[in-house]
Amino acid sequence: MTALTLAGSPLWYASRAGGTLALVLLTATVVLGIASGGRAAPRSVGRFEIGLLHRNLSLLTLVFLVVHVITAVLDPFVHLGWAVTVLPFAASYRPLWLGLGTVALDLLLAVLVTSAARRRLGVRRWKAVHWLAYAAWPFALFHGAGTGTDTRLSPQLWLYAGCLAAVMASVWWRLAKAGPGRVVGRLVAALTATAVPLVLGAFLATGPLQPGWSQRAAATAMLLGGGR
């Protein structure tokens, strides 16, 4: 808590809030995407509403991401520079953990552009890029956990746990619903769905939840040679 009060510029608060909200919205988008892919048909809502909500929440995710990124760059405390917003691992501040966020943003931008041009691209290319959105989600999660300003707060931990549980539940639901065929795809999904919570748990236990993480997070900068 002392760290919070010390780093207390309004921009810094806005950035963290924006990032957290974006993660929650991205989680909801992913869950809805999986639901519509698995032909979820709840009685009370139309299937098209799931699709529309998926689209609208994804756009809202990007809005909060923009807030998150702009405020982080403008914040005088970390001196990030604009290049960091699109170039991963180029930051002076916690390059690895910030870079994961940049990768997630890049992936989401690719999904945004291809979705807007999907009629021109055709369904196969559109969907191929759309699968990147799945990768964006764990990237965003590890970015949040690893950058770690708020990771040690228990509400924040509960939030991460909630996001993880929601996506894992929908992935397993989808796998249970899937028919035969696409064995490789299902295997990859199942392995990833098993690995992500385990890796995240192990990472949190050994990294951000241990004392002195902020020093070590910055130290990875030295390891990567990106620190100045």
Partner: peptide
């Protein structure tokens, strides 16, 4: 127009 946009297979 909305129905066209909603088709997940662009069909």
């Amino acid at each position: 127009r909305r129905a066209v946009a909603a088709c997940p297979r662009l069909a």
